[in-house]
Design a protein around this nucleic acid. Structure first.
Lengths: 269, 269
DNA sequence: CTCGCCGTTCGAACTGTTGAAACGCTCTGT
DNA sequence: ACAGAGCGTTTCAACAGTTCGAACGGCGAG
């Protein structure tokens, strides 16, 4: 066992599996097509070792090889898995209709996300017919997208309800990069914001991720009371939404209502 | 190398990786939460071996363990991968807007799918605002869904354009189970249908998958002329759509147009 | 024609993997 | 209280799957 990461769990581990998965995740939206040599460099493995794993992945349908170029891309099996994962989150099944209603009523895009380490992952997303596209296109946001938690409304909600020790560990390894005009660029600002979120129960993103983009988020709890997800309403800069306060005033109520509705359906009292 | 499958490729293969992936795919929409013992039985592996792989998957974020029940479910990393895969299919990027237009114009649900072995996998799906839900709910169809090719319009289009040898191999291991009132339940019927599809260029599904459900599909070609995907329009039984012919008459034209449009954007002349 | 890079194959050295057994735990029925 | 069954987890020596350098044949560029 070469691996002796921090947090001394380190006992049971499969090197081969890790390497195979490293290869799978070396494919991304920005690098969708790779050859053996590309992959081998990306994961720093011997070329023939890489080849054996890639051949395995291809044989099992996780990778697809273009017969002409000999290069590989992700296969349909991976799509399968991804959607099995999405549907596993029982939360989606109960939340989807609530989110749709909220989108229809408010006329804006509503999303739901969970926390994965320092990132949020979108697990559901509903647009009202009225508000087409907008920032979703510029940011290329969709179900499955990842965004750093510290600069999103849902991320801040989720961080705010983490156990202090876990939160501290997370913040230790987050880089407060400036993403928008008003990004919280240091730990103190974020910690203060989280405290306020714990008080008020909602988080606001006021152009912290991108210019002209504001959102309000609220927590979703399961039957044990744990915050398992967050939902938000996002609004692009418009004639009426000129300050964060205006946005909150208009959207907080229906948002809270929907979050509460979903929580209730998950068994939270 | 213990494996010596048919089709003597069998050289480079990683047992460990295969086993790890078997574990991942033992999770499904119907079995979203599994314990070590469940998995071990499902993949017929020794319990401790299973444990080691599961621990690895969990450590890397592909599985999530509920701290209370100790049971596992698919993690966000898998969702990531799935969407990376979807976006890798560059075809989606170019097709999505065309499909949306077609959905809006026709007022029906349009889909796109690729072939994976004997199944079709939905890779894109657009509903017009008008036609809400319907069979999509009863069949629980969504992007990532799999359906046997022989009883779907898109599946038949894709089968029709396969190389004869590949097609034969596929048909050898398909079970022509009855799925709807008019399912093609033997090889001869299907082969005849495929011949007609090659002639006309479109495939029709006339209640072969489910009662009251009809659809028309057309092929999408890439720059090399190969059929890489199919698109369809599906229509629920309604007042005007009482026979397959009526449906075709009304939808064939716009469908062909959109399929051609997408093919052109992929570089097909 | 040569060079360089590619995907792929080979094989002996070796190291990560295997699986039975046992641990501590929580239930369930007695 | 108790025994038993089942669970997730840990251990370890024997083993078998994996590793990586080297080499092959094909391809495109110079």
């Amino acid at each position: 066992m070469p691996i002796d990461d921090e947090a001394g769990s380190g006992a049971a581990f499969s090197q081969s599996l890790e390497r195979g998965l490293m290869i799978l995740s070396s494919f991304s939206e920005t690098r969708p097509v790779l050859g053996i040599a590309d992959i081998s460099r990306a994961v720093t493995l011997n070329k023939s070792t890489t080849y054996r794993y890639v051949a395995t992945l291809a044989r099992l349908g996780y990778l697809h090889q273009d017969p002409e170029t000999k290069k590989y891309s992700l296969g349909p099996k991976v799509v399968d898995l991804g959607f099995a994962a999405l549907n596993s989150l029982e939360i989606n099944r109960v939340a989807a209709p609530c989110l749709q209603s909220l989108a229809d009523e408010s006329g804006y895009t509503v999303s739901m996300a969970v926390l994965d380490g320092p990132d949020v992952v979108y697990v559901e997303r509903r647009r009202s017919g009225r508000a087409a596209g907008g920032f979703a296109i510029s940011l290329n946001l969709h179900v499955g997208s990842r965004l750093p938690a510290y600069c999103t409304s849902m991320g801040k909600v989720l961080l705010a309800h983490l156990e202090p020790a876990v939160l501290r560990a997370l913040l230790d390894r987050t880089d407060f990069a400036r993403r928008g005009p008003k990004t919280l660029t240091n730990r103190e600002q974020l910690t203060a914001a989280l405290a306020k979120i714990r008080q008020t129960g909602v988080a606001v993103n006021d152009e912290e991720l991108a210019a002209g983009l504001r959102s309000v988020a609220a927590p979703v709890r399961d039957r044990t009371g744990r915050v398992v997800a967050a939902i938000n309403i996002a609004v692009h800069l418009t004639v009426w939404a000129t300050t964060a306060d205006t946005v909150v005033a208009r959207l907080e109520r229906p948002l809270r209502h929907t979050a509460a509705e979903i929580s209730t359906r998950l068994g939270y009292r």
